[in-house]
Amino acid sequence: MSPAAASPVLAVRDADKRFGAVHALKGVSLEAFRGEVLALLGDNGAGKSTLVKCISGVHGLDGGEVLLDGERTALHSPAAARRAGIETVYQDLALFDNLTPAQNFYCGREIAGPRWLPRGLRFLNARAMDREAAAVIERLKVSLPRFDAPVALMSGGQRQAIAVARATVFARKVVILDEPTAALGLRESRKVLDLIAQLKAEGNAVILITHNMEHVVELADRAVVLRQGRKVGELRPSRDNQRQLVSMIVGAEV
């Protein structure tokens, strides 16, 4: 690992979260490093999504803390998390079907001016946004049928690629991907996995939630396993310990 990986870019300490009677997270800690893919594994209801939502600002923590580059950070809202450099690709992608890829990229963070006006009243710099978005699409080698058509006209894989590409534009520290290949065919999954590898190569800390063990072994440098709201294991996934990983997830010998 590179020297920069010595200190974690994201650290979660003793995260605790309750929803009424349900104790969803019970003192979970984890660390994510730059240039590394961390797989977050667990059965349904293990607390993966809750943990990720706490990191991306959707839920607040009841106990514990989130540190970014060693500093305690309050993430009250998704917008605050994004400002702090954490990008999330949600399972439903959070794409606007009626907007073009470039418009989707910059939605909520439009390139606009003049700066002395309130944000909503600024004038869009559409040309700059189109140019930048096209450059990113080009760099990530995503092939889109048309750049000026609404996202509604694109396939599942293309939409996924747009959502991931959007995250790469703005990610400065952490990218979280919630089951990015769940709804995709083989060929389209391949494309998205390549994108994830590229995110890692560009020095992001990637947190990947998935049920696909093949993808974990291929991409992940580390895997953290949750079960019933607790962290039950952490290891370096490989072909040899795949069975061990699965038994940790389901909580029994396989």
């Binding site: 998704p78 999330t88 794409l95 606007f96 907007l99 909520g108």
Partner: peptide, 19 residues
């Protein structure tokens, strides 16, 4: 642009930090 975003997908508009 925000009007179209809110009409296109209100939940995503919240996630993207649109008021």
């Amino acid at each position: 642009r925000w009007i179209y975003a809110v009409g296109g997908k209100p939940e995503a508009a919240v996630q993207m930090g649109i008021p």
